[in-house]
Structures are given as C-alpha cells and as structure tokens.
C-alpha cells in the first residue's frame, strides 16, 4: 500500500472550473466578493474559503497564443514540510492509509507565517476570524467512504485523476509519453515528492510561479522563523524528477 495520489493532466484542462465549484459544493464553502481585474481568474488567489483555484495564464508575449490553466491545490507532500514545521501536536495530521495531509482545528494555534512559509507551493491560508488554517484535505471523508474527491469526480476531460499512487504514477508515465510527442519538454512535476502530480506541457513558470518547488520565491522568507521552516523542508523535495 503506497497511499493515494492525483494525476493532474494539464494538457487536457479546459478551465471549466467544475472542480473549483464542486469543491465548494461538497464542503459548502462560502463565495468571496470579487471584482474583475482584467483576467478570467477569480478569486484572485487561494483563501480560507477557496482551497482550490483554477489559475489562468497567457505566458507568450509573441508567437502562437497559449492560454494555460492550472487547477491549484495542496500537493499532499509525501513528507509534508508543513507538518514538520508545525509546533502544535495534532494540528496537522498525515493519514497513513491515503497520505492525505489534513489540517485540524488545532491549526488555529499555529503561526500561519511558519506553516505557509514551510510550504514549497504556497498553499496554506488562514481563516481571518477563527484563525484556523485551511487547504485541500483530499476530500478524505469521501475517499474513506470509497468515493472520488469532489474535484476529480467533476472533471469531464480526464485532467483530474485519483487512485492508488502506483496506478497514478503509471498513468502519469503513459500520459507523459503521449504529451512528449506534441510538447517535447512536457514533464511530471515533482512526482516523487507529492501526491498531486501535475503533467505540464510547458515550463512550469508559464502556468504559475509555484507550480513547482523550483520556482520558490525566497524573498518571501523575510523572518528567521521562515528561514528555519525553509530549512526543515526535506532535501528530497528539492530535487526535480
């Protein structure tokens, strides 16, 4: 038993945002007040009530137009740095069966800067009122009941896939083989270190700066505590596949 994983094939995503809403529907997360800022992407960022966000990007300044979509969520790291950075027992749990990294109500006692700073993908957010930290929990209630995560179930194109990790790695290899014929630089992003494996056709920064750990913006680590959190990250996750 190697736990569960997602294979997210970005070459297929149409940004229908079914997953973004299905996530809110299952968890009954509230909507945010937003405005249009000159992009279809909304809400503009992850938040305590938006734990899954489809990011839109038009990276090419010249040449053929590309419009890239990146459904962003917690990667459920194989060895989660956020858990290592946590200082409250039981605030961040790591489910042995699935590998899901789950934040409990005790995260309200954590320091968001430490936890968020520890995340190589900049995922954790904090509820401004309860101070509880939020992110994707792999729909662990559904998964334990034999159901697919809400986002995966809603996906029409085969972008979102979920299952036993070995099966997802196998599917990822198959999909990568296909993708490389069209996009020679296609890659499975950080596949060994995370349970949410993205298949990207283009350089990861074209989608979003934190699609991969390699894009980590060190300037975010302003404080000593942040740096410490950074150091706690497993060495393994710094290597690329």
């Amino acid at each position: 038993m190697n736990g569960k994983s997602f294979l997210v094939d970005l070459t297929r995503c149409t940004a229908c945002r079914g997953c973004q809403i299905a996530c809110k529907q299952w968890k009954k997360l509230p909507a945010e007040k937003t405005v249009n800022t000159g992009s279809h992407q909304n809400p503009p960022d992850l938040s305590s009530s938006t734990i899954r966000l489809v990011r839109f990007s038009e990276p090419m300044k010249k040449g053929p137009v590309q419009w890239l979509f990146f459904p962003e969520q917690c990667r459920h790291c194989v060895e989660p740095p956020c858990k290592q950075a946590s200082s409250v027992e039981g605030s961040i749990t790591h489910d042995p069966d699935t590998g899901a990294v789950v934040y409990t109500e005790l995260t309200a006692q954590e320091d968001i800067e430490v936890i968020r700073g520890a995340c190589p993908y900049d995922i954790p957010r904090q509820d401004p009122v309860s101070k509880r930290m939020t992110k994707c929990d792999m729909c662990i209630d559904r998964v334990k009941a034999g159901m697919l995560p809400a986002c995966v179930k809603s996906c029409p194109t085969g972008t979102m896939n979920f299952g036993d990790r070995d099966d997802m790695l196998k599917l990822g290899a198959e999909r990568l083989g296909y993708a490389k014929k069209i996009w020679p630089k296609a890659q499975l992003v950080d596949a060994q270190d995370v349970r949410v494996i993205y298949l990207a056709a283009f350089p990861t920064t074209f989608y979003y700066k934190y699609l991969t750990v390699g894009a980590l913006d060190r300037s975010r680590f302003a404080t000593r505590r942040d740096l410490l959190a950074q150091l706690l990250r497993p060495v393994k996750s710094m290597t690329s596949v």
Binding site: C16, G18, Q25, K153, C155
Partner: peptide
C-alpha cells in the same frame, strides 16, 4: 443537502462544469 454528477450517466459520467456543480 448535496447535488453532484450522476456517475452512471452516459453523457457526463459524473462530471459537471462549474454551473452544473453549483
């Protein structure tokens, strides 16, 4: 209390877009 896609349905197989999911 909950509305989601019908996994048996031959058209969508459980999938829904943002509108359907809402």
């Amino acid at each position: 209390v909950n509305i989601e896609g019908d996994p048996d349905h031959p058209v969508n197989g459980g999938a829904l877009c943002s509108k359907g999911a809402s």
